[in-house]
Amino acid sequence: MTTAVALDAVPRIRRGVKCAYDQIREAHVVLFPEGVLVLNETAASVVALCDGVRSVGDIAVVLADEYDGVEPEDVAELVARMVERRVVDVDG
């Protein structure tokens, strides 16, 4: 039951959530009370940009520099999944 996230929504990493790099799994991870999420490279880049200032649209623009073919809708969907997992909050 993923709630849609608007392109002008501003995501922010939730309080108590930590982002880290795990040398054992050689992957970016997010750590939070209920568990651990292993992120792929794109997801890690998105989460790292959830700073409470940039909107979903802004994040897509930043990422378009790094990766080809990043659509704002993809970022919105990924953020929605992170909201569902209680890794990020959105306001706006």
């Binding site: 795990d22 054992i24 799994r25 750590l31 568990g35």
Partner: peptide, 8 residues
């Protein structure tokens, strides 16, 4: 535990 992979 950390060397084994534990993160929490």
């Amino acid at each position: 535990a950390r060397a084994l992979g534990c993160l929490q």
